[in-house]
Design a binder for these strands. Structure first.
Length: 841
RNA sequence: GCCGGAGUGGCGGAAUUGGUAGACGCCCGGGACUUAAAAUCCCGUGAGGGCUAUCCCUCGUACCGGUUCGAGCCCGGUCUCCGGCACCA
């Protein structure tokens, strides 16, 4: 049987130059080196290491049942390349991994499989850990933990107790977002377009007694501290919009009750105090507490009907901007404080109870929503800001609301003022007359922290009839999540924990009397809001984090993860960090100095040609397992990097992987072909290629241009194997440095060849090579000769050819002369080392 | 509607930030090796054109215009796609 050599492709009868043992057989060494790195402690970050630290963190996964696909690999490969590079640059790199294992996804998966969440979660963790190890990433597994570990959630609970004591955690009856499918309340951030972020079902309002965290108290700090972060602008903008700070004024109006004529003051919030004279009606939110008190007997039935109807609306209906406005008149009037005018009070669901004061002054001339409402219900529209830019009907009335700048009209003593000035003046006047004041509002709401589910951290509070809400003493934490028979959600608004009477009934820590435990659990985001701190001292028993080690490792230097956490997780983590900073647990108030969002990997649907997200239900998931088996980890790693700019989405391509695999085989052969003959010196052109490679590789790594790094290596191998250069003298240093440079991307490949070429210790204990800039410049370069900006000739010249010589050379070119015929030379522009442009007319 | 981002060959994408557009890879075509295929290696590959075809010309970075000796890159306008927010007063 004749068979071709796998490496060189020649038949054995032709005396293959490479033996069977020298082919690129990744299966022989990839697993071996992974085991070696782990066992020799190469990935373990030691606290006594004197090198400067570098903390690189991946957003830790929640252990889903479906495991990792090639899309998940992307971020992990990227961060690992960076960590290995930083290691070679002389840093003590902290690169930990753990599990975000509490919460809805883990629990829903467990319920579906009918396996207890604790057991199911553990199985999923084991599977994902195995998959993660296949990536060959240098995780320090000695620091691994799960948010479900009692020793971990002890401190999640401790933080809650501290927040309770600071007044940041409070309980409130309020209508909240309720997911009927997940059978739990949700935070505002978890409702996307009116549906549950997790399961996609429509969310309803439900009145529940909820634990809340006062994140709004930190709104300004969360907003202004964004400035100091090296984060993608997009994420900063998203957070800033979510916080939604606006400046305006609170204005006190007086309501005249339609029932008994009683005068009751109320406050509206407006960002446009300059339009106060244009307020032609007032709107209360249907949930506003004053509505029953002011409603006239004639309108009472209509009002009640409307309130009931509004309560039944889902968030989707209610927040739809395209829906026609609805509302009813209350029969009451309000007195405008600036001109004493009486305007009708309506209720309408376009005014939200949760923002501002739940009541507005409506200025239809200068607000689109008010304009639509007033037009529908025939309410007068009074223009108070004049501008020629306003869009008008033929009769001069406004055709739509005018929201731009202008001068005041119909505004008494303020007529003629510019709107910006009027804002100041009118606010000042209101303040001096105690009818209003400057005011700031946020779209950000307090964080609904209660979940009516089993699989979460129990909220460490005890309800005592005598003492009220009492936090569990810090030395009695953690409050362990009890074992239960039935962990399915009840749907009643109470968590399954409420059914366990021996757990619920306890003693009051203060008076010792009978008391009941809080049965709500914390949301999924609780554990992930501070886990990055824990990695600095994962086994620390005295607190959240050992202060010395916190000072050593924190904050996180680079945080890598998907854009999907732009608001939720990143905002919560920043909030927790600021609270813990205020508690003096840590000395910094921003957790992640630099953030990198890797793009998604999608697949092209063969039928439609469209890119689609990988998902189990579509059956289009590309599993790395088969690819690793066929091509090896290093090929898949480089394939992930080569797919495109790391911050952009990219289509997965098996064919592209083939190209990488070919490259690694060529590079493998090049190293083995040359190592025997390699000496102490390089030929000039080889030395040049080496320095160009170091320069390109270093610059592109620093710039996170991972896709073009792979190109740099391909160009290098193409150059050194081209006919003229393949026999040129080459040094052992060039081969060694090539391996060091490629090691962050292809660690197994590099380590194997490093040892194969006679080195004793690991390649990851080496130093990153430096380049000499002068050696990256080639001796002869091609200079372009242009006539009027068009390329007419190319000349190969020495790199230091002076200007005038280049000019002369350019004019001598045959093709240049042809194009200059009959023309006068006006100007000649010479860019040394680049081009000559002859301007002629 | 508002706020971002992006439009470059058959495809993924390069381009030192104003200086040779299409690096590198994929696909495809041709060749070498082979009885043959696979693998491997070599050559070609933006479109169109030219009678002195290893040479040369025209067009070409979504579209229209501008600045400049020179524009994928800067400026003004238009279109398309993608993401986020969306009755927040």
């Amino acid at each position: 049987m004749r068979a071709p050599c796998c490496v060189c492709g020649n038949y054995w009868k032709r005396r293959c130059e490479m033996s069977e043992t020298r082919k690129y057989d990744f299966k022989k060494f990839e697993a071996k080196w992974r085991e070696y790195w782990e066992k020799s402690g190469l990935h373990t970050c030691r606290d006594d290491d004197p090198r400067p630290k570098y903390y690189c963190l991946d957003m830790f996964p929640y252990p889903s049942g479906s495991g990792l696909h090639v899309g998940h690999w992307r971020g992990y490969v990227l961060s690992d390349v960076w960590c290995r590079y930083k290691t070679l640059r002389g840093y003590n790199v902290l690169h930990p991994m753990g599990w975000d294992a509490f919460g809805l996804p883990a629990e829903n998966d467990a319920i579906k499989k009918k396996i207890h969440p604790r057991i199911n979660t553990q199985e999923n963790i084991d599977n994902i850990r195995r998959q993660l190890k296949e990536i060959g990433a240098m995780y320090d597994w000695s620091r691994e933990f799960s948010t479900t570990d009692p020793e971990y959630y002890r401190w999640t609970q401790w933080t809650f107790v501290k927040m309770f004591k600071m007044g940041l955690a409070y309980k409130l009856d309020m209508p909240i977002n309720w997911c009927p499918s997940c059978k739990t309340g949700l935070a505002n951030e978890e409702v996307v377009g009116g549906v549950c972020e997790r399961c996609g079902n429509e969310v309803h309002k439900k009145n529940l007694n909820q634990w809340m965290l006062k994140i709004t108290e930190y709104a300004d700090r969360l907003l202004y501290d964004l400035e100091k972060l090296n984060w993608p602008e997009k994420v900063k903008t998203m957070q800033s919009n979510w916080i939604g700070r606006s400046e305006g004024a609170d204005v006190v109006f007086t309501a005249v009750s339609g029932r008994d004529g009683a005068r009751i003051d109320f406050t509206v919030y407006t960002t446009r105090p300059d339009t106060l004279f244009g307020a032609t009606y007032v709107v209360f939110s249907p949930e506003h507490k004053m509505v029953p008190d002011i409603c006239s007997p004639e309108q009472e039935a209509d009002v009640r009907k409307y309130i009931e109807w509004a309560a039944r609306q889902t968030d989707i209906d209610r927040t739809s901007t395209t829906r026609e406005k609805t509302g009813v008149f209350t029969g009451a009037y309000a007195v405008n404080p600036v001109n004493g005018e009486k305007v009708p009070i309506w209720i309408a669901d376009y005014v939200l109870m949760g923002y501002g004061t739940g009541a507005i002054m409506a200025v239809p001339a200068h607000d689109e929503r008010d304009f639509a409402f007033a037009s529908k219900f025939g309410i007068p529209i009074v223009e108070v800001i004049h501008s020629d830019d306003a869009i008008r009907n033929d009769d001069g009335t406004l055709a739509e609301a005018y929201t731009g700048s202008g001068k005041l009209i119909n505004s008494g003593e303020y007529n003629g003022l510019d709107w910006a000035e009027a804002k100041q003046k009118i606010t000042g006047m209101l303040e001096s007359r105690k009818l209003g004041k400057k005011s700031v509002n946020y779209k950000l709401r307090d964080w609904i922290y209660s979940r009516q589910r089993y699989w979460g951290e129990p909220i460490p509070i005890v309800h005592c009839e005598k003492c009220g809400r009492v936090p569990v003493p810090e030395d009695q934490l953690p409050v362990l999540l009890p074992e239960v028979e039935s962990y399915e959600p009840t749907g009643t608004g109470e968590s399954p924990l409420a059914a366990i009477s021996e757990w619920v009934n306890t003693e009051c820590p203060e008076c010792g009397g009978p008391a009941r435990r809080e049965t709500d659990t914390m949301p999924q985001w609780a554990g992930s809001s501070w886990y990055f701190l824990r990695y600095a001292s994962p086994r620390y028993c005295e607190g959240v984090v050992d202060p010395d080690l916190a000072a050593k490792y924190l904050p996180v230097d680079l945080y890598v993860g998907g854009i999907e956490h732009a608001i939720l997780h990143l905002l919560y983590a920043r909030f927790f960090t600021k609270v813990l900073c205020d508690l003096d647990v840590i000395k910094f108030d921003e957790p992640f100095t630099r953030l990198f969002n890797q793009g998604m990997i999608y697949v092209i649907d063969e039928a439609t040609g469209q890119g689609e997200k990988m998902s189990k239900s579509k059956g289009n998931v590309v599993s790395p397992d088969a690819l690793v088996n066929q091509y090896g980890t290093d090929t898949v790693r480089m394939g992930e990097l080569f797919a495109g700019p790391p911050e952009q989405d990219a289509a997965w391509s098996d064919q592209s992987i083939e190209g990488i695999y070919r490259f690694l085989k060529r590079a493998w052969k090049w190293v083995l072909d040359n190592i025997e003959r390699a000496g102490a010196e390089d030929a000039r052109e080889i030395l040049q290629e080496r320095h160009i490679l170091i320069k390109n590789c270093t610059e592109r790594l620093e710039g996170f241009k991972f896709n073009t790094i792979i190109s740099a290596f391909m160009e290098f191998i193409n150059a050194v194997t081209e006919p003229g250069k393949s026999d040129a003298a080459i040094s052992k240093q060039t081969i060694g440095e090539f391996l060091i440079l490629i090691s962050p991307m292809a660690p197994h490949f590099a380590e194997e060849l490093w040892r194969e070429t006679g080195h004793r210790n690991s390649i990851f204990e080496q130093e990153w090579p430096e380049y000499d800039k002068t050696l990256t410049i080639k001796d002869t370069i091609e200079v372009v000769i242009q006539v009027n900006g068009k390329v007419r000739a190319k000349c190969s010249v020495s790199v230091d050819t002076p200007k005038d010589e280049l000019e002369k050379l350019g004019l001598e070119q045959k093709n240049v002369k042809k194009h200059l015929e009959g023309k006068d030379i006006k100007k000649i522009i010479v860019v040394p080392g680049k081009l000559v442009n002859i301007v002629a007319k």
